[in-house]
Design a protein around this nucleic acid. Structure first.
Length: 550
RNA sequence: GCGCCAGUAGCUCAGUUGGAUAGAGCAACGGAUUUCUAAUCCGUAGGCCAGGGGUUCGAAUCCCUUCUGGCGUGCCA
């Protein structure tokens, strides 16, 4: 919008002055406010071409600009930057545009309706979701919302590993607990089994339905009953946890279903057709070394069962078959060894490797009383997603996870997240929203009605803080595009915090409602109600509430 | 050994395609409330951007290298 106009104006000027130039110069908002509203490096990049010194070239450009009415000033700075200051009226108009855009402000067609598959969490269906899953959930969910808002067609998927070894162990664990209920005493609960309390609860629930009748059926049938019951119950449990966290999925892709539908065989046959498989030691191997892997990998084990790699290849095959333009896998840091094998397979299948992106979310340390809380799935001593939400609440949990870029390790300070005080950044943002609501309420009581507001009043907004707030709001569309583009929703979290901060400072410095100046008061009310909407919109995209009152 | 990720203030972290004087929050210290919500604001202090080299008008950012930490490197998933 404004930036585009400046670029255009610069180009026109360069042509007018008969300068040679490259089009890839930049126009950006400087970090330092004293450096003006916008800054360009056009003279730095093109001075050589025109046999001029950068400052000299900049000076000539400025002379033309100083005659344009939308520009308050243009000056040479540093080695040859040109800093522009725009007239307040330009920003006043922009503010009106934000309001006119209403709920659409910030959205764009950047994604061009491209189809995006976001796979995240994909935790094993063998227990409750943990805090790492929570981080992945918030990340994926927020990225989904942002991508859709900037014009992508995103789709959320959870891949359920409901086949394989770990599921057998789950069924066996349940059976042991079930037997315990019927008075059988175990010497020791096997170390590889699932120890969590939830297995005991499942046994109690199963017992309430089936009683002792499972002892009287065939072993195979009992095993299947155990397995299916556990999988179903745990799925329900996971959905419930996610629901509390505001995370939803468009599809739960079952590994068992993939197997039943013969996709594994399909993937294997494609690999065979591509001459990438061979038999050795009674196993079937994938010759992944020809795609840069260190060694070849087993696909079908000596016992005739596929390794985990096969269903994963098959699953990714379906991702490609479903016609997505971007395939994003959100994984834990312990998966990157696995991804190189998967990528080798995708190459072997002659699928477009560029479509596949892997985002690694780094580990989390939970801190309580300054100490790291140890987590172990095997011994059952995990902090679950439910625990976390119960402890710190949904808003704080989401904000804390979102406040970090995905590739960063995350220390989650439980004590800080629990605090309902100024130390807690999530309240800082929400408080700005609540504060504005409160002012608007008060204005209404004092008979300041925005209906009698007129655009002409906006010229009363002359304070630098006011113009800076408008500038900040104008950044939202770009922040969202950058968040989507780089798959980094944390940029939005940082943005809201900054905007909230600007409002708090403004609030402390200026009074919005002034009985003696109707036009100024209405203009300020107009401004802050826009700030309120932008904060609410941003928090909304992060799945965080924006309270009217705190 | 090889591969991936990271190293920025006492702590936790931001830092857009390379831009000008590297920023927040917390912790520390000193202030502000007869006022539209003090869950706030203002100020002070705090830095060899892990070390070294290179690329150029210009590097926390790109390249090379060394060091440190996490993770991976199964016919487990």
């Amino acid at each position: 919008m404004i930036k585009k106009k400046i670029i255009l104006d610069i180009k026109k000027t360069l042509k007018k002055l008969n300068y040679k130039f490259d089009v890839n110069f930049t126009v950006e908002v400087p970090n330092i406010i004293e450096h003006g509203d916008f800054s360009t490096n056009v003279a730095l990049l093109n001075a050589k071409k025109n046999k001029l010194k950068p400052r000299e070239m900049a000076k000539n450009i400025i002379e033309v600009f100083s005659r344009k009415k939308d520009y308050k000033s243009a000056e040479v700075a540093g080695p040859g930057f040109i800093n522009f200051r725009l007239s307040n009226s330009v920003y006043h108009k922009a503010l009106v545009d934000i309001v006119k855009n209403k709920k659409k402000f910030g959205s764009s067609n950047y994604g061009k309706r491209k189809k995006v598959l976001l796979e995240f969490i994909s935790a094993n269906p063998t227990g409750p979701l943990n805090v790492v899953n929570a981080r992945a959930g918030v990340y994926g969910d927020t990225l989904y919302r942002i991508m859709n808002f900037v014009g992508f067609k995103a789709f959320r998927e959870f891949y359920v590993n409901d086949a394989g070894n770990q599921v057998d162990i789950l069924a066996e664990s349940l059976e042991l607990r079930y037997r315990e209920l019927h008075g059988e005493h175990l010497q020791e609960f096997p170390s590889e089994a699932y120890h969590g309390e939830y297995v005991k609860e499942l046994a109690i629930k199963l017992n309430a339905i089936d009683g002792s009748k499972l002892f009287h059926i065939a072993e195979k049938d009992r095993f299947e009953r155990m397995r299916d019951f556990a999988l179903e119950e745990i799925h329900i449990m996971q959905v419930a946890s996610l629901d509390k966290f505001g995370v939803k999925f468009d599809n739960w892709m079952s590994e068992r279903k993939l197997r039943q539908e013969g996709i594994l065989e399909e993937a294997l046959s494609y690999l065979a057709e591509a001459h990438c498989t061979y038999e050795k030691d009674d196993a079937i191997w994938f010759s992944s070394t020809q795609f840069g892997d260190e060694k070849d990998r087993v696909l079908i084990k000596t016992d005739g069962n596929p390794t985990y790699l096969v269903p994963d290849i098959a699953y990714h095959l379906t991702k490609y078959q479903r016609g997505f333009d971007y395939i994003i896998d959100v994984l834990g840091p312990d998966h990157h060894g696995h991804v190189s094998k998967l990528k080798a397979a995708i190459e072997a299948l002659k699928l477009d490797l560029n479509k596949l992106e892997v985002v690694y979310l780094q580990h989390i340390n939970l801190l309580e009383d300054g100490e790291i809380v140890k987590m172990s799935k095997r011994t059952g001593s995990i902090v679950t997603m439910d625990d976390l939400i119960r402890e710190v609440g949904r808003d704080a949990a989401r904000y804390f996870f979102l406040n970090r870029k995905p590739s960063a390790h995350l220390d989650f300070d439980m004590d800080l997240a629990k605090k309902k005080s100024s130390e807690n950044p999530v309240y800082y943002c929400q408080y700005a929203h609540a504060r504005i609501s409160s002012i608007l309420k008060k204005a209404k009581k004092a008979k300041f009605d925005l209906k009698s507001f007129d655009i002409k009043f906006l010229k009363k907004l002359k304070q630098e803080d006011e113009i800076n707030i408008i500038k900040k709001m104008l950044e939202l569309p770009f922040v969202l595009i950058a968040s989507a583009e780089h798959r980094e929703p944390h940029r939005l979290a940082i943005y809201v915090h900054e905007l909230a901060g600007m409002f708090h400072k403004y609030y402390a410095k200026f009074k919005v409602i002034n009985e003696n100046n109707l036009e100024l008061s209405l203009s300020r009310l107009y401004l802050i109600s826009t700030v309120k909407n932008v904060i609410a919109k941003s928090l909304g995209l992060m799945g965080i509430s924006a309270p009217e009152k705190m």
